[in-house]
Simulated assay, not measured.
Amino acid sequence: MTSNPALAANTKPWRDPAAKPFISIRNVTKRFGDFTAVDDVSLDVYRSELFCLLGGSGCGKSTLLRMLSGFETPTAGQILIDGQDMAGVPADKRPTNMMFQSYALFPHMSVEKNIAYGLLREGKSKAEAYERVGEMLKLVKLEKFASRKPHQLSGGQRQRVALARALAKQPKLLLLDEPLGALDKKLREETQFELVNIQETLGVTFIVVTHDQDEAMTLATRIGVMTEGVITQVGEPREIYETPKSRFVADFIGSVNLIEGKAGPAAPDLMRVETDDLGPVVVPPTAGLTQGQTVWLAIRPERVWLTREPRPDIANSVPGVVQDMGYVGHMSSYVVRLANGRLIRVTQANESRRDTPITWDEQVHVGFEPSDFRVLTQ
């Protein structure tokens, strides 16, 4: 993260209060009968962003995307794209294109004909259309596959054809609904970086819908976390992960230990929280709390210390027993059972092969630095 505010504002316009959003979603609601799919959502997205809408199935993210594209009409609220109100503007007249999870390629057409189809339909000459097709094939590195049919391609190659077809018409805004959902894990991870490189090369604004937290963290300039039709938090990936504003966001993004307690007395630099699981814990002071108020302490597994002997330099330390563990090469994951039965998740890097690793049923100590806790009130 840059420390220069002026530079940050130039490269990350959402940090600049004076920046004009490219997309403005204002108090948008969508109801299907008695069911509210999107509930009074307001959101600004800036030009050339790769913005991710992240949430579980049924949270409203795809419905919001379909309203941007014109395939659904808001029940209430307003959507503006590049300053133009989209009310009454049909899908084919909007400066948008949409890429679906199924890719929807024409099976009887070659790769180049699939990409050219939309250009020819809108009246481009054959020469002009195929010149653009050549540019798109080069962009997605499929020049050698121009004459192949979709069934002769891998899943990753079909995904790139669909992306090239969506970008060929040069939309101002590309909407992608679970674009990598059909790919296996390794190919998905490789394609994520390809997608980012293509987006940065063209400078087109992307809005991506996904339920995959890792995918959103890898792709996005910013993430909007959705649940039950509302956006609960918007922020850069690091901000969403390190400083969640609620238990839902903390729990939905990655793995987290959530410990309930009561706010105790606060000093200028530390505050005490009384917990049943860890006893009294010291954490950074949080403004606006009253003594005795219920709070939740969120701490990521990689922030928890795990040692065989207690460390006197760690302010918060409790004994436990390793109940479970998993080795995944560069790191190990542990589940530690405390005396009262509470389970604490710990992740440690496997830094040295010469060390004797902690293993099942060992007596251990888990430690928590005060600054690694995030104090949540909701």
Rank of each mutant, 00 (worst) to 15 (best):
M98P: 04
F106E: 06
E189L: 12
I299R: 06
K262C: 03
D324Q: 14
A220C: 02
L43E: 07
D40V: 04
P150H: 05
L270T: 14
H330V: 14
R354V: 11
R26V: 14
E215N: 02
Q192R: 15
G254A: 00
L343G: 00
T221F: 01
V321I: 14
G77E: 02
S110F: 00
N114P: 06
V161A: 03
K186H: 12
G88A: 08
K12R: 14
E112W: 13
K113Q: 14
D85W: 09
I223W: 02
P370A: 10
A104Q: 02
V273G: 06
N316R: 07
Q78N: 13
H211C: 01
G70K: 06
E351A: 12
R345G: 11
S69L: 00
I358E: 06
Q159F: 04
G203I: 06
D214G: 10
Q157I: 08
G292R: 11
R354W: 12
G156T: 03
G326H: 13
A129L: 05
T201C: 01
V283S: 08
S69T: 00
K93Q: 15
T75I: 04
L142W: 07
Y327G: 07
E189W: 00
R31S: 14
Y46C: 04
T221A: 01
L183P: 11
W14S: 10
P268A: 03
V209A: 11
K124S: 10
E236Q: 13
D324G: 09
F35G: 02
L297M: 02
N10R: 15
V45Y: 09
I299S: 05
G134W: 09
T243R: 15
F106I: 07
F100N: 08
S110K: 12
L338R: 05
R188H: 06
S125T: 15
G134M: 09
T347R: 15
G326T: 13
G60H: 01
K149G: 01
I240M: 08
E309Y: 10
A267C: 00
F51E: 05
N197P: 00
N350W: 03
C52T: 10
A315H: 11
G70S: 02
M226R: 02
Q378K: 14
F71D: 00
P319R: 09
L289T: 10
P285F: 11
V282T: 14
T191Y: 04
S371N: 13
G58R: 08
C52P: 06
A19C: 11
E236H: 11
L80N: 12
E178Q: 08
K61E: 07
F51V: 01
Q378I: 11
A339R: 12
G320W: 05
D85P: 09
E302G: 07
R308Q: 13
T243H: 15
L180V: 06
F145P: 00
N316P: 05
P357F: 07
G156L: 04
R238F: 13
A315M: 12
L43A: 09
K186C: 05
N257I: 07
K172E: 15
P95L: 08
V196Q: 04
E200C: 00
A168Q: 05
V111N: 06
N27Q: 14
G320Y: 03
N197Y: 10
H330F: 13
K30Y: 08
P17T: 08
L64E: 07
D85T: 10
P310H: 09
A220N: 01
T191H: 07
L202N: 06
N340M: 07
P90F: 05
T290Y: 04
E189M: 14
